[in-house]
Design a protein around this nucleic acid. Sequence first.
DNA 1: AACAAATGCTTGACAGCGCAAGTATTCATC
DNA 2: GATGAATACTTGCGCTGTCAAGCATTTGTT
Lengths: 167, 167
Amino acid sequence: MDAEQEPRWLDAVEQQTWFELIAVMSWLPDALDAQLSRDADISHFEYQVMAMLSMSAQRTRRMSDLAALANGSLPRLSRTIDRLDRRGWVTRRPDPDDGRATLAVLTDAGWEKVVATAPGHVAEVRRLVIDPLTKAQVRQLHEIANRIRHAVQPDACLPTLPAPDGP
Amino acid sequence: MDAEQEPRWLDAVEQQTWFELIAVMSWLPDALDAQLSRDADISHFEYQVMAMLSMSAQRTRRMSDLAALANGSLPRLSRTIDRLDRRGWVTRRPDPDDGRATLAVLTDAGWEKVVATAPGHVAEVRRLVIDPLTKAQVRQLHEIANRIRHAVQPDACLPTLPAPDGP
DNA sequence: AACAAATGCTTGACAGCGCAAGTATTCATC
DNA sequence: GATGAATACTTGCGCTGTCAAGCATTTGTT
């Protein structure tokens, strides 16, 4: 019933790296929540949900797709949509193609909330993550995070960017 | 009252990198919690607290030091110590040097719990983070995480490693 | 066509965390 | 050496998240 035999411990560099990563994973989400909570009175997850809707066709997504896109569980999304609905930023519609499914739709007020909130949030992301790094490090981080993500969640999906400038 | 004027948006690479990082920050903590919860019936934060104590002189730390070391708030640590105390892995002692302070001490049973849990946890960290990366990428991640951490928490402290082999 | 299994979402019960207030001890000042 | 401010920790309360159960709809089977 034992699976471990002579575990491969982390060497000094690996251990240091691990502690650094733990620290970032602990503090960065709190910092993002703090900025959004202070300046826009929403959580980072709530922002993420609305941002994903704002990038979607018809500003609409099925609940389960939206949950995956925003990296949250379905119950968590359901309750988040409750809150956003109460504030008038999102509404629910039954999916005409599948009676079991529910569509979340960003309202006009929700769109404006995202537009008003985005600049401050992007500035914070720049300040905390992008600007402290060199351009080369940003590319390195892209590849590193991609590898870790695949190890953690082999079948996770990333939002398909709406081709900001190019075709 | 406006602070934003023509925000500097993220370019495609920066945006992709940001989404990758969000995904990792969302899923990796859950994956660590899942392994520890499944194999050792403790949360990652609880493990972190005990691991930090196990590295400390006399297996003892002041609550506030321990909270900073484990990247948590003092109320969070206080309640975590409650739970670990109830399970017999940690005890509280008043600090003889400062009557306000409380010392958390890892018991023998707690030490054994860490020893029993560490191999499986390290294996998971390897599987999810270290092994998917090249040696160069581990070094890159170290520097990248260090820069982000300083931007997020200028005065954060990292555990001083007990010089695993060298002096 | 009818029934069972699977899918998509919601919800009740419960646990954990943060905030702010509370308590106890130490430090600083006069 | 008293009194007020500061520090260290704990705790009551509310919010949010997870887990498991529940309900409705669709799909697959006979």
